[in-house]
Design a protein around this nucleic acid. Structure first.
Length: 580
DNA sequence: GCCGTTTTCGGCCCGACTGTTTTCAGTCG
């Protein structure tokens, strides 16, 4: 079993134990073990299992080490199979219903014999649930509504779409006279590719008008909670949002707390405790006999980190993936910022499946202040996207050369192509044709279902082609819609580094592919990144912002990203590549 | 189930809100 599969199995054990009413600390131990596993490398796990040293990992003790070893070697675990047999699968599904936790589900199961959501809906409809001790009319209605809207509620939302909604709310909140400070927190602020719900943190002395404004927004469909200092709403889009209002002196603590991630917060609290401080969303308080005489003064997140001996950690890095250790050693790297971007290489025009002409795209790039714009329309094998054959591509190259020579735009246009990687790894265009271009993006657009070894060999063959400059959307995933194709990314990254091929960070908000989780390690090993919007119309160029987010989550600095390079450096680099 | 300059037992982060209660349990983050 792979590391992630084992981590999932441990997580499943935790859920099943919850539904059996087990000791909460035992449950947490399984969750901690799953997280600990996720944090180590696949090869390291193999070594630890073989050497019998799993227990050296913090959070893994005797029992978990034995279970992990079983799962790793045999792929099976009797303990988990027995658990599954005793807990109806429908109960696990019921956890998705807002307001229902393990205790209530246990009661529904034990007293009404309910084993799935359909039976639960029936019991709500005929009023049996309201009759249970600890339940009532409102709970019954809430459960029923939760079941009805389960699909919409459970849905996550693209960061890009959530960010648009959040920006309007933040602007509105900041304009209120009572509001001193306001930020969106949560996974949105961390720049995660999908967002479950929105969190708004507000510093205000008089909170009632702020709550009133928030719940009165026209896009609010339902107010799910409302109190003196917080409120929860659901927008018509299905997106849920929480508002929390705190006194100004608590703002930094609340903002940090609700930005998370959970794992980051756990580590921060542990670190605080080691210094005699208890850290919560409200502030520092003394903890234990070694507590300092006075609490550190904190008015911003920077001071909060400083109080714990840490450099400032940008929200995007707060995933509990080593950022605290790094911040302990000194300032973190200066991550790439939107203002560093000077161009992009993977963009379409109406010559293939884009919506705008070459000149319109160039004008839009110039308006963004870009020094260069790469045009990479589809190649002929992508006939569904009106891909270009050799004759049409040669005409486009000529058109681009003419446009550059005309001096009409300050932005230099590079002539490229998004060349299909055929199912056997050959390229869709011949070498002479590719040699006439400034660069080549190679991408997979068909035969997504190939087995992993076949797909991996196919992509690596393309990477080894001397005319290939960069690999487009490495997995082909579409967020919330389609999984990526099966490919051994470790080997693809190795091949790209070995052949000096760039891997794209496709900045389309639906793709963000190659995933940020791979970049830190890959870049440290020498992989170069191109943040490409894959724009199909002028507005799409703005998607580089989503790519910059993802790149920041991947710890990328400007030097790792070729689209931050100035034009002269890019020209030199491209001409060097052509001579290889 | 894990962990240990409180070290092999006794803790493990904790507060707001809701709906149910009549002083609080469950859920959520």
């Amino acid at each position: 079993m792979t590391k992630n599969e084992i981590a999932d199995a441990l997580g499943e054990i935790a859920i099943l134990l919850e539904l059996k009413g087990e000791n909460p600390f035992k449950i947490r131990a399984y969750q901690t073990g799953a997280r600990a596993l996720e944090a180590i490398e696949e090869s390291e796990l193999s070594r630890l299992v073989e050497a019998g040293e799993l227990r050296s990992v913090k959070g893994i003790g005797e029992a978990l080490a034995a279970k992990i070893t079983d799962l790793r070697i045999t792929g099976r675990l009797g303990f988990l199979e027995n658990l599954r047999a005793t807990v109806p699968a429908g109960l696990v599904e019921m956890l998705q219903i807002p307001g229902l936790g393990p205790k209530k589900i246990l009661a529904l199961h034990g007293k009404l014999g309910i084993t799935d959501i359909a039976a639960l809906a029936a019991a709500c409809t005929d009023g049996r649930v309201a009759g249970l001790a600890g339940f009532g009319e409102k709970t019954q209605e809430k459960i029923l509504a939760g079941i009805r809207n389960r699909e919409a509620y459970a849905k996550r939302h693209l960061w890009w779409e959530a960010a648009e909604v959040a920006a309007q709310i933040v602007t509105g909140l900041r304009a209120l006279p009572q509001v001193r400070r306001c930020e969106a927190a949560g996974s949105l602020r961390r720049g995660l590719e999908t967002v479950g719900d929105l969190d708004f943190i507000v510093a205000a002395e008089d909170s009632a008008p702020v709550v009133a404004w928030f719940i009165a927004q026209p896009s609010v469909q339902e107010v799910t909670a409302q109190g003196g200092t917080k409120a929860s709403v659901r927008f018509t889009s299905g997106l849920q949002a929480d508002l929390r209002i705190v006194p100004e002196q608590q703002f930094a603590f609340a903002l940090h707390h609700f930005t998370g991630s959970k794992q980051h917060n756990v580590e921060m609290r542990q670190r605080a405790l080691a210094r005699g401080l208890s850290l919560s969303e409200w502030g520092f308080s003394p903890a234990g006999p070694d507590a300092p005489a006075s609490m550190p003064a904190v008015s911003g997140e920077g001071e909060l980190f400083a109080a714990l001996g840490l450099a400032f950690i940008p929200p995007e890095l707060r995933e509990g993936l080593g950022e605290i250790e790094a911040a302990e050693r000194g300032p973190l790297p200066r991550l790439i910022e939107a203002g560093d971007i000077r161009g992009a290489f993977h963009n379409h025009t109406n010559a293939s499946d884009g919506g705008n002409t070459l000149a319109e795209m160039t004008a839009a790039a110039e308006a963004l202040g870009w020094e260069y714009l790469g045009i990479a329309d589809h190649s002929k094998a992508s006939f569904q996207a009106n891909g270009l054959d050799e004759a049409r591509l040669r005409r486009q190259i000529a058109e681009i050369r003419t446009l550059n020579a005309s001096g009409r735009f300050r932005t230099k246009v590079f002539a490229g192509v998004e060349c299909d990687i055929l199912s056997d790894g050959r390229l869709d265009l011949d070498d002479d044709m590719l040699g006439e271009l400034d660069y080549v993006v190679a991408s997979v657009h068909n035969a997504f279902a190939q087995e992993e070894p076949v797909m991996t060999a196919r992509i690596i063959r393309a990477i080894e082609h001397p005319r290939v400059t960069m690999l487009g959307h490495a997995t082909g995933r579409l967020l919330l819609r389609r999984e990526g194709y099966h490919v051994d990314l470790g080997r693809v990254i190795d091949a790209a580094i070995a052949h000096g091929v760039v891997i794209e960070l496709n900045a389309s908000p639906w793709r963000l592919d190659l995933d940020w989780r791979h970049w830190r390690k890959a870049a440290a090993r020498g992989l170069l990144c191109a943040i490409n919007p894959d724009a199909h119309e002028t507005a799409g160029l703005g998607h580089v912002g989503a790519g910059v987010n993802a790149a920041r989550k991947g710890w990328l600095e400007p030097r790792h990203v070729i689209t931050t390079w100035p034009l002269s450096k890019v020209e030199r680099w491209l001409s060097d590549l052509k001579r290889r």
